Computed example of a mutant assay.
Amino acid sequence: MQQNKSFLGAVIYIDLRGYTKIVEEKVLENIAQLIYNYQEVITQKINNLYTDEDIAIIEYMGDGVMIIIKQQELEVTNTDMFAHNIYQNATTIKNSVLKILKLEKEKYTDLDSIDFGMAVSLSKIYQKNITTNRNQQRKMFFGVSLNRATKIGNAMDAKKNHIGIDKKMYDDYLVNTLHKYNMVKGTKPIVHMYSENITKPSGERKASLK
Results as ranks from 00 to 15, higher is better:
Ala90Trp: 04
His162Val: 04
Glu104His: 08
Phe142Leu: 02
Glu106Gln: 09
Ser145Thr: 06
Thr131Met: 11
Asn135Trp: 02
Gln127Thr: 14
Asn30Arg: 13
Met1Trp: 04
Tyr108His: 12
Thr132Met: 04
Glu25Phe: 03
Ile130Asp: 04
Ala149Thr: 06
Arg17Ser: 10
Ala207Asp: 04
Phe116Pro: 08
Asn78Met: 08
Tyr19Trp: 15
Gln2Tyr: 14
Ala155Thr: 15
Met81Ala: 15
Asp63Thr: 04
Gln137Ile: 11
Leu98Arg: 05
Asp171Glu: 11
Asn133Ser: 07
Ile93Glu: 02
Lys159Gly: 01
Leu49Lys: 07
Asp54Ala: 06
Ala119Ile: 11
Lys168His: 12
Ser208Thr: 09
Ile86Pro: 09
Thr187Asn: 07
Thr77Ile: 11
Asp54Lys: 06
Phe141Val: 06
Gly143Glu: 00
Glu40Thr: 12
Glu29Cys: 01
Ile152Asp: 10
Asn95Tyr: 06
Glu204Val: 13
Glu59Lys: 07
Arg138Asp: 07
Ala207Met: 04
Thr199Lys: 04
Leu146Gly: 02
Thr79Val: 13
Glu75Lys: 13
Asp112Ile: 03
Lys99Ile: 11
Leu209Asn: 01
Ala32Ile: 11
Asn78Pro: 05
Lys21Arg: 10
Glu204Leu: 15
Ile31Tyr: 11
His162Trp: 05
Ile69Val: 15
Glu106Phe: 02
Thr131Arg: 12
Ile22Asp: 08
Ile22Pro: 10
Leu49Glu: 10
Lys5Glu: 14
Phe141Lys: 09
Thr109Leu: 07
Asn129Gln: 14
Tyr19Pro: 09
Met61Glu: 07
Asn197Met: 00
Val65Glu: 00
Met193Glu: 15
Tyr50His: 03
Glu24Arg: 11
Leu49Asn: 11
